[in-house]
Each structure stands twice: as C-alpha cells, then as structure tokens.
Design a protein around this nucleic acid. Sequence first.
DNA 1: AATGAATGAGATTTCATTCAT
DNA 2: AATGAATGAAATCTCATTCAT
Lengths: 185, 185, 185, 185
Amino acid sequence: MRVKRKDTKKRILESALKLFSEKGIRETTIKDIAKEVGITEGAIYRHFTSKDEIVRGLFGMYSEEFYDRLMLAFEEKTYRDKFYRAVEEFLSFCFENPEAFKYLDLFHYLRAEEVKEFKKLPKDAILKLLEEGRGVIKIRAELALAMFVGTLERVFLFTQAGLLEKYKDIKGEVADLLWKALTSQ
Amino acid sequence: MRVKRKDTKKRILESALKLFSEKGIRETTIKDIAKEVGITEGAIYRHFTSKDEIVRGLFGMYSEEFYDRLMLAFEEKTYRDKFYRAVEEFLSFCFENPEAFKYLDLFHYLRAEEVKEFKKLPKDAILKLLEEGRGVIKIRAELALAMFVGTLERVFLFTQAGLLEKYKDIKGEVADLLWKALTSQ
Amino acid sequence: MRVKRKDTKKRILESALKLFSEKGIRETTIKDIAKEVGITEGAIYRHFTSKDEIVRGLFGMYSEEFYDRLMLAFEEKTYRDKFYRAVEEFLSFCFENPEAFKYLDLFHYLRAEEVKEFKKLPKDAILKLLEEGRGVIKIRAELALAMFVGTLERVFLFTQAGLLEKYKDIKGEVADLLWKALTSQ
Amino acid sequence: MRVKRKDTKKRILESALKLFSEKGIRETTIKDIAKEVGITEGAIYRHFTSKDEIVRGLFGMYSEEFYDRLMLAFEEKTYRDKFYRAVEEFLSFCFENPEAFKYLDLFHYLRAEEVKEFKKLPKDAILKLLEEGRGVIKIRAELALAMFVGTLERVFLFTQAGLLEKYKDIKGEVADLLWKALTSQ
DNA sequence: AATGAATGAGATTTCATTCAT
DNA sequence: AATGAATGAAATCTCATTCAT
C-alpha cells in the first residue's frame, strides 16, 4: 500500500490547490487532500504543521511565481512592448494556472491584512509598470491598475465560465483594448 | 415596550451579511449570528429552516436590489446618459452596501451553478445595456462586460482597501474612462 | 434519552475529578467524562471551553475548599487546640475527598508555576498556623511545614493504599506525634 | 571517531527521564525523546519495543538504585547511626537525581498495582530500618514510615521549589528532627 | 543501527440542528 | 416566539508504532 514517491510535499500542495479552487478553503478538509494525494491524514502533518501552513505556503508560492512572470515584461525595450508583454504574461499565467489564479484572487484582496508578509505581490509588478508609464498612461496609476487588473481578471473568469469565447488572439485583442483605453484619454 | 424593532427576520439577514462579508460564510456560525442579533441559536430556526436558507435568501435579496438599481439606467434618454447612469448606480450601490457587494461578488461568478435559480442577476442588467449600445460600443458585448464590471469592481475594492482615494467625483472620472475606452476604438 | 438535570456543570466536575484521580489527567478523555456523566462529548463544551478549563476549575474549587477547612483551625482559643484542629481538618478533608486530595497533591507541587493564579492555597493556611506558633514550634516554619504536610499526606496515602490501618483515633494519634515532634526539640 | 559515546540505550533512558519529570509521561512523545537524544523515532525501537518498556525500565533502574543506596545504612554499627545514614542517603539520592525522584515518587505510591513486579522498592528498605528499631522507635513502623518518607520527600520538594533554603547541613538538621520525633514519644 | 515517511487509531474541538421547556 | 442544553457528525490534529530503504 505504501506508494513510494519523493515529492509528497509538492503533491500535497498541488492537490490542495486543486481542491481549494474547486470547493473553497474551508470546504476542503485535510481528509479530502489526503485522499486526493493517496495518503492518510496523519501523513500530511509530517510535511505541514497545520492546514493554515498549506494555505499560506500555496499563496506565497503562486503569488511569487505570478509576480516573476509579470516582471518579465521589463525585458522588453519599448514601453508599449512592456505593456503588451505584461498583458500577455498575465493571461498566460491565468490560463496555465487557472486554479491558482482563482485561489489567489480570492485571497488577495479580500483578506488584505493576511497578505502583508508576502513580498512579491502580483499587483506590485503591475503598479510598477504603470508608474513607469507616467506620461504615456494618461490617468493616475492606481485607477489604471484597477482597470488593468479588473479587466484581465474578468476576461479570464468569463472565459472560464464560458461567457466569453477564448478564440485565437484574445490576448492581443485585450491588450489593444487596454492600451488604447489607458493612453488615449 | 413601544420601541418598534425591525422584525427579527430582517435583523438576522443583516447580521448574517455583516458577518459573512467579514469572516466568510463557513467561518460564521449560527451562534455568531444569534449573538450579533441578540437572540439565541434556537430562535434563528423560527425564521429560517437552515443556514443555507439564510445564504440564499441574502444572495437573492441583494442580487435583485442591485439589478433593479442598475436597470434604472434605462430611465435615461440618450445612450450616453444611460451608460453614465449605470456607472453611477453601480458604484453607489457598492459604496452603500459594501458588505453585500463583497459577498455578492464572491458568490456571483465563481460559483455560477449555484446561481441559476435567480432571475435578476446584476450582470444581466449590464449586458443588456451593452447590447443596446451595439454600434456605439465598438467591441463585442461580452468583452465590454468584462471591462465594465472588472474595472468598477476593482475601483470599489481598491477604494475600500485604501489603495485608491475616494475623492469627490470618482464616479464621473471612472465613467469617462470607461466610456472612452469602450466607444473610441 | 435526554435526561434532564439542572446541574450538568457540577456533574461534569465531579465525574472529571473521579476519573482524573483514577487514571490521571492525560489518560482521561473528554469522551470518558461525557460517558461518566451520561451526555455526549459536544455537550461538555457548552459548559467548559476546553479540557484545561475543567482541570483548572477543579483545582481552584478544591484548593479553596481545602484552604477554608484548614482556616477553621483559627476558631480555636489556644495554640495547641488550633494545631490539633488543623490536623483534624486536614485528615478529615482527605478522607472525605480522597479523589480531590490525590488530584490536588499531584498538581500542587509538581507544577508550581501553573498554580500561581490561585489565591487560597492549602499550604498557605498551614504556613500561617506554623508562623503563629513561633516560640512554641521550635524549628523554622518552612521545615515544620515540610514535616506537617509530608506526614499527613503520607498517612492519608498509606491508609488509602492499605499500608496503614485507619483505626478509630488515627487523627489524634498523628496530631500527638506531630505536636511533640515540632514543639519539643 | 574515537569519541566514546555512552551507548544509545542509556542515553535514551536519561533523556526520557529528563522529559518525563519535566512534562509528565503522557506529555512526552517518542519524537521528543528522539530529538533530545539526537536520533530519530524509528531508532528508539531498536532499543525498546515500546514506550511502556522505557517507562518500566526507568522505574526499575532508579528504584533499585535508590533501594541499594538506602540499604547502605545497614553498614553502620549503632541503630542511631543507621538511622542518620538512611536520612543522609535518602536526601543525597534526591539531590543527585532530582528528576528520578520526582518521577519515582509519582509512580510509586499512587499506582501501587503497577509496581508489584519490582522487588527492591525504596519503601521496603525504610520499613526494614524502622522495624529493626522496634523499641527505640516508639510508634508503629507504618506510621513512622509515613513521617519519615513524607518529611524527607517534602523537604526535597520544598527545597527544589525554593520554599526551603538548602543551606549547609540540612541533612543533619532533618535527621535530628526525625530522630527526636520518632524516638522520644 | 538508523532514517523518516506513513499508518491508523483516537483525542480534542466545532457546529448545524433538534427539542424539551 | 424564544431559550439553551444536548446531539451527532465531522473536522483538525496527535502520536505510538511500523516499515521500506
């Protein structure tokens, strides 16, 4: 019965994320996670000291990964390219990690106090981009952030929900939309 | 003896909403709600048959109210005025019912299946508005919906979180931003 | 099935004491206590917020009662009578509350830090008595306390264990023994 | 490589004793002991088949050592010297092995049944001494035992707790006290 | 000998719901 | 209508012990 595998810790995180995004954190029990991984409840506690540690571990992990992806935008030369690249990376991350995104989103803004300990928050990457664009971006950075994040978020969620067709170049389409909206006031 | 108390049922809903938006649904116990109202656990069950009934009751109530508010936009004459009125009503509702909004938002789009029974969903009001604007609105209605809803949502949440200053005419500012974004592609 | 009784809280304390002294605190489960009382585990938590609260509650309750009993010695006129009365009350309390005594003893001196919050500790009543006897009692009060408490404790425990016969006037016999020991150096 | 480490079995017993006397038996986990020794849980089971075996092993070991120490009293010539030597050995053992003593004490008299298998119980050495003193000791041996053991026990515990100063000749002081108490009725 | 992941049983605690009053 | 004790199911967590390596 003892299935041997090296990466139990990683598998716990993955299963937890899947279940958290499907059912919510509170609705997901340690037993659920254990069953998904294929181990017993007690075994979870060799890798994490509490359910909360799993939650925070997940948030930190994906938050950082998302942040790093967004920061790739700064590799581009022109500001316009940086902007388009940021949109591209944002949506790519969402579609590649839909569960993580839903989970992050939920956690992110609704429980702001609990997030303070994390250094690399995705929103900070975007804010940096928008502040760098002062002059090109016609409105104050925080309002631009709201439109940028809000729009991409909804695009992703509507696509997931089937409300919006995820056809070929939705990334380019949305990038155009946002670029015009924020630069041509 | 003559003090007219709002009837208990209403007070239960209000207290539940407050606690749900503060701590989440699962984290809020019937005992918490009872204490907030100033009655005991058993008494709750005089008015609702289950905790779930409270949840659905709340969602239906605020969802409908929000929908009705948004539909007021159609009282305006010109399309532009309707659009501006919708933004105005959206943000007014949010700021007047911040708890309800946070709560609704969460429930709304992330758990689409659970929402099917409700006829008057806020998103349908906005969708109707955007479809009526075909011609003026340059992009397909669903994408416009994503930007419209996403932006307003984030404006509200950022304002609540202190990231965005809620100065005098934020409603007008945001309405301008959205109007230009959606009409001038 | 729902047996109606007013004093569930008291019954919980009594059952807990019985089991604690029989099996030890850690070895006694909430389930054990519940079964002994004739209710379910959950019901315990309507009366106490944790197992620890039961433990501290018990200690405080019996500690105070024991203290009050010992303080009755000061009702007597002569010092000798006070001394004899204290011995009498000490042993009476032990034989009337054997479980409490074993439990108290265990808790008392082995986990001194945890006991600080309690004001009326039995040992303080005895210490007061011995200090009042300065002059009559020939040795320093703390050493006298050790002999007084140690002897009575062992007399009780040996009697309980069947090592010592609990015949008619053991209280008088022990009081004589202690009185002579402490006054005639 | 040449550092001769005390063998693991002994180190386990020592660590276990330390933790048992600090936190109690049930409160001490195998993992705690392993960490204290510097090995892992599984390794413990190379040396002991169960936690209970550690417990009984410890009790037997210290009980016997204590017994042997007390029996040294019989090396003395006169009865008075035997008595004084017994007090001396009793307290020496306590102060040298405070953890063992606390642990033994607890176990010793409160759970008499569990102790039956052990042949050399400290109390039997004392009882032997007191019985040999018939004539000199004025009271029945069991009562004398209670005073002897109880007083010494409390002297040790109070000293440990800081209630009693452990100055130069406390052993002689206590021996005098007990000798007079038991012989001059 | 030793490691440390895993098991499995059980302990504490929580809580929606029921029910006698 | 209301109270609040009690139920019962389930959740989190603990830990002695086993076992593959």
